[in-house]
Design a protein around this nucleic acid. Structure first.
Lengths: 107, 107
DNA sequence: TTTATATATACCTTTACAAGTATATTCCTC
DNA sequence: GAGGAATATACTTGTAAAGGTATATATAAA
């Protein structure tokens, strides 16, 4: 798993931006308006999201449209799948059972 | 999506700890040995992971076994699913096409 | 009952980063 | 080409968080 993706998302404003962009590309100004934050803050957060490949830019005149890129989210999804055994309840119950009989042996 | 989960994971050492625990419960000392970090650092990181519900503890004599909890990872998985339209290539291509004909109209 | 082991926590120092503000840059419009 | 809009960036300041080290706490062992 890429730590860059996680750090980028682990900031409340940036997470909000990502969730906003889920609905489609937006300009810097539109994001600032919708989230009630100042434009320089938005630009700075978008820079971080851009460097971590989470978004990409498309300039159009003097505006810049930002949109989500699929790769980092796909990677996160793949990483989570490696934990399937953990969130599979049956697996957990088996683990508990094995520990139980282990403890019985110790007595 | 819970920002607490993301912040907890967005730290290299903690991410390593989580990946270690994928293989099963471990004590503080075992984690410190395997990752070559000092014990207080491990305890502090485990405290963060515990507060964000990512791990749980089971005391046994003077040792404490830490193990992963499924819920936060499941939640992340669910959150990622809300982006399916983004990482579905067909959807992206449709979006590109719609933008293209939009630009044609402007000429 | 002293000693050793495992873990948590307190304190200090350093660093990273987010917000605020001002300004530079680019492009459009008149 | 002058003025205005959209965006990026530089600078400053405050704060949170991570590592280092020492120590407190609890349990086991001698």
């Amino acid at each position: 798993m890429n730590i860059t993706t996680l750090s980028a998302l682990a900031e409340p404003t940036r997470l909000q931006i990502v969730e906003l962009l889920r609905e489609g590309p937006l300009t810097v100004g539109e994001i600032a308006d919708r989230l009630h934050i100042r434009q320089p803050q938005v630009s700075k957060h978008l820079k971080v999201l851009n460097e971590s490949q989470i978004v990409e830019v498309r300039p159009e005149a003097n505006r810049r449209f930002y949109k989500l890129r699929p790769e980092p989210l796909r990677e996160m999804d793949g990483w989570l799948k490696t934990f399937r055994s953990i969130w599979d309840d049956q697996f957990n119950q088996l683990e508990d059972y094995l520990r139980e009989i282990q403890e019985d042996k110790s007595n």
